[in-house]
Design a protein around this nucleic acid. Structure first.
Lengths: 330, 330
DNA sequence: CGTGAAATTGACATCGTTGTCACCCGGCCA
DNA sequence: TGGCCGGGTGACAACGATGTCAATTTCACG
């Protein structure tokens, strides 16, 4: 910048004015400066600018998701990116892999980088470690799982309602032995889905069989094995509710291997690409990722723009997408 | 930092030493400073630190991919993230959506943010606009598509060989009328795949039929329509090579709708989740995303660490994953 | 107990910007 | 003619940190 100023024969401050498109620079000087910038290949240093500016905005937000390579997180990231791009805000993205330690260290790293805001899908049980930051005004929006131990904006899906929807759907198709495949019980969304599964049985007056409920499944391999065991029972389930997309995939693998794909009903939670191309096409409870992402962005940027109303909690209702696998008769 | 220094009764510089874990601070002073940091909730400001440091490292890299929500880009991002995490480097990720303007503006934005390096899947025809930056030592690694108009590290898949593999596979299964579904011809990888498709015919002495080659397809909808038209020909293809994963999906949709999924052979380029769960399971040419990502990270961080050898170009050989759809007889 | 080397610590300039305020100049009005 | 105003410009300090180098303290050793 000093070199540009020298070449254009003006002061540093004037170059700064041109770079920031401030008013009050004569067109003559402005063009001279712009020419100098071009000649020297000068590039504005955003970090220095942020440092000096009174508002201290870095025009960067941090996004901590479960795993940027799974379709839900990736879709979310993309939706946030689109909203951020409009404001020329960059995104620092990371995966948490359900590891609380990683959440702590990544949040710290983002704060040291002075992000203007944070979006996160928490993996810790409580986020009270964020209390200081929240109090000092860091905008944080929780997604998929609400905050615990602190209060902050959140956008979550009504997991219980979604599970209720899925389970009731199969009950209505005459199933009385419906298995549940779920993720780690400590994850609040998994617990809510399980609660919905149970509620549906209660509502329908159908007794639960604990032997059909399997939790703590981490991925498709776990789910496949669990499904295999369920099918080996003396009185196997005639339907399955897979409470996460990778678990539905594991269930499909097991059913497919046994030639039961068209015999046992299956409803998954969370849609994914190609679910409609499976045979039978997979019936799922869909959470609208783009809509969630858009809501999150709206909340986050409102906070960044100074909104200091009490935290808002947006709940999105999932919908049942009927495709075939969930409508198989017992 | 000033407050911490005052509270601990030491100078600014000493606090800096503690924060940076530099040697030469007595344990007594160190604990006093650490206590003060804890009491005041002081957080190190990485931007200011970067600004002042002699090496000017921001510990941030930029990653520009085609679309962070597609499985290839998302897998790449994840592989890069894992490598970056080990070095406590953060990732600024963005999608280009095949829009050259966006590439220009995002690269500019990353440079203004003083990233330590750049990974990109270019969408522009030529990247000579990067020449100045490359000359001044910005580490850049191209992925999936090599650089044009400038020289820089790259990691690409041998697209021609992959297409040759796929096409030859179907020729060997007796097919003589194999359709080609491809992306925008201006994309170099698409051109290479088409060349491989043609080469395979030439090698086998099988004549090409221009009516069976369809390019410029952007997504599954385009591919589905193109496939529908091909199947309506008087002399329809008995096999299809879909040169990108979304095109394979479109082809499957078309074939499925006509009940031809088990009649017409299909090989896709680029594996994706669930390809093995389709019916028939999809035979594909697989590019090993994790391996590509690992290579990219290796090159990038070597450059960041000062490696100034001539640019390296890594070519990864894709492999044919036989699953069923590609082995259907004519 | 003096000496020199090593270990600690601090003062100050500086990284690349922008906020503040003062200055200069020409034009307008009384 | 004098005073005032407003647009254009620049000097300087400051943002939050670290590099440099000098000052001070500590300690081993003769």
């Amino acid at each position: 910048m000093r070199d540009v100023a020298a070449l254009a024969g003006v002061s540093l401050k004037t170059v700064s004015r041109v770079v920031n498109n401030e008013a009050g620079v004569s067109t003559d000087v402005r063009t001279r400066v712009e020419r100098a910038i071009g000649q020297l290949g000068y590039q504005h240093n955003l970090a220095a600018s942020t440092l000096r500016r009174s508002d201290g905005r870095s025009n960067t937000v941090g996004v901590l998701l479960q795993d940027v390579s799974n379709s839900f997180s990736a879709g979310m990231l993309r939706a946030l990116e689109d909203a951020a791009r409009e404001r020329d805000v960059a995104i620092l993205a990371s995966s948490l892999d359900e590891e609380p330690d990683r959440e702590h260290s990544l949040v710290g790293s983002l704060i040291r980088r002075r992000v203007d805001g944070l979006v996160m899908m928490p993996t810790t049980q409580r986020q009270d470690y964020l209390a200081d930051e929240l109090r000092s005004g860091l905008p944080v929006v929780f997604v998929d799982r609400g905050p615990k131990g602190v209060d902050a904006d959140s956008v979550v899906v009504d997991n219980r309602a979604g599970a209720l929807l899925a389970t009731t759907h199969m009950l209505e198709h005459g199933h009385r032995r419906i298995a549940y495949l779920g993720d780690l019980n400590r994850i609040s969304t998994a617990a809510a889905r399980r609660a919905g599964y149970r509620q549906a049985h209660k509502d329908a007056g159908v007794p639960l069989d604990p032997a059909l409920e399997v939790g703590d499944l981490r991925g498709d391999t776990d789910a496949r094995e669990a499904m295999d065991r369920l099918l080996d029972l003396d009185d196997p389930p005639t339907a399955v509710f897979a409470a996460r997309n990778s678990l539905a995939i594991g269930a499909v693998q097991s059913l497919r291997a046994r030639g039961l794909a068209h015999r046992v009903a299956l409803v998954g939670f969370d849609d994914f690409p190609l679910a409609d191309l499976l045979d039978p096409p997979l019936t799922v409870v869909r959470q609208d990722v783009r809509r969630i992402g858009t809501e999150v962005a709206r909340l986050l940027f409102a906070r960044i723009d100074g909104d200091d109303a009490p935290p808002r909690h947006v709940v999105i209702e999932p919908v049942l997408v009927v495709r075939g696998s969930g409508e198989i008769a017992p």
